[in-house]
């Protein structure tokens, strides 16, 4: 009855043991996120009130950048971009959320994840490539027009898709719709399937089931998905650049152009506005729905 294994040397325990130095390794990811994400993102607020110099900026306290932003056409364009992003959210919800509900309610449990994974494929191909690829699809002689002409639905190619707000909205939806499916499904996953059987059993109509059961239970997921689409629709500059017409901008493209024009305080001011908007939206969402519920299935 030998029993006790040879005790490891105490220095090794001090380094590698549960209470050894090695446990600080677990703090590294969080430290990295704070230093390379939270700090720079937070500092945008500080830099936005710096004074612009010819090539750079210098410490100061001025609202000049904000003034520039709000008194130029940029503010108006920004407002339009917000409207377009909001429309993209609504369209993505209408197109994508029924999928999440359908898969959770009607598809056998064993293949639910597989069906949802179908949406990973388009999501993982660069949004850049997908946005880029929309150009030949939506162009005057593109796929959509050719197809409609062949069918005889239209006589003339529609030229009012590409390089218009419609093009931008289509780009947003095509880029971000999978996220609505994912977060919607994740939220629905927290809902036990028997809940639906109870609804059926009680004879609740489709509308009631949706309004009184599905919507409240999936609200955190819907909200998370909506915020993601809204903020990205507003912030991904490539989409208006590639699909929008002349002058089509959003926060992202204004920021990028300001950087190119070496107006760093302006870029930081718009970034700061975006960050504050994002934090406010997430905070409201968390206050309303407790967004941690979205993560329940994995913890």
């Amino acid at each position: 009855m030998g029993g006790v294994p040879v005790a490891a040397g105490s220095w090794r325990r001090r380094v590698f043991g549960e209470e050894g130095l090695v446990r600080y390794v677990f703090l590294l990811p969080a430290a990295f996120m704070v230093l390379c994400f939270a700090v720079p993102v937070g500092l945008t607020l500080v830099w936005s009130v710096f004074k612009r110099t010819q090539f750079w900026m210098e410490p100061g306290l001025t609202l000049f950048a904000y003034e520039t932003f709000f008194t130029s056409a940029r503010a108006e364009n920004f407002a339009y971009a917000m409207v377009h992003a909001a429309i993209a959210v609504v369209v993505s919800f209408l197109l994508g959320f029924p999928i999440a509900v359908f898969v959770r309610r009607r598809v056998p449990v064993s293949i639910q994840h597989r069906v949802i994974l179908l949406f990973i494929l388009p999501f993982m191909i660069s949004e850049l490539i997908r946005v880029f690829a929309l150009r030949p699809v939506l162009a005057r002689h593109g796929l959509v027009n050719e197809f409609l002409l062949q069918l005889g639905v239209i006589d003339e190619p529609i030229s009012a898709i590409l390089f218009t707000p419609l093009g931008v909205i289509i780009g947003d939806v095509m880029s971000f719709l999978p996220f609505m499916v994912f977060s919607g499904f994740l939220a629905m996953e927290a809902v036990q399937r028997y809940v639906f059987e109870v609804c059926d059993d009680l004879g609740a109509g489709a509308l009631h089931t949706f309004k009184d059961v599905i919507l409240p239970l999936a609200a955190p997921g819907i909200f998370a998905g909506s915020v993601f689409i809204f903020v990205n629709g507003l912030g991904v500059g490539l989409i208006p650049n590639i699909l929008g017409g002349p002058g089509a901008v959003n926060a992202g493209s204004i920021v990028f152009e300001s950087i190119v024009a070496l107006d760093f305080p302006l870029a930081m001011a718009i970034s700061a506005i975006m960050i504050v908007t994002l934090v406010a939206l997430l905070w409201i969402g968390h206050w309303l729905f407790d967004l941690t519920r979205v993560l329940e299935p994995i913890s």
């Binding site: 993102v41 500092l43 993601f228 912030g235 994002l278």
Partner: peptide, 28 residues
């Protein structure tokens, strides 16, 4: 848990141009 998960997932929600330029100015 909430702090960690927020920190780890937050970059998903910050659009590329915004995060990119914040980092650019930070590194400069």
């Amino acid at each position: 848990k909430l702090v960690l998960v927020t920190l780890m997932l937050a970059p998903l929600f910050v659009p590329a141009d915004i995060l990119g330029s914040a980092l650019l100015v930070y590194f400069k």
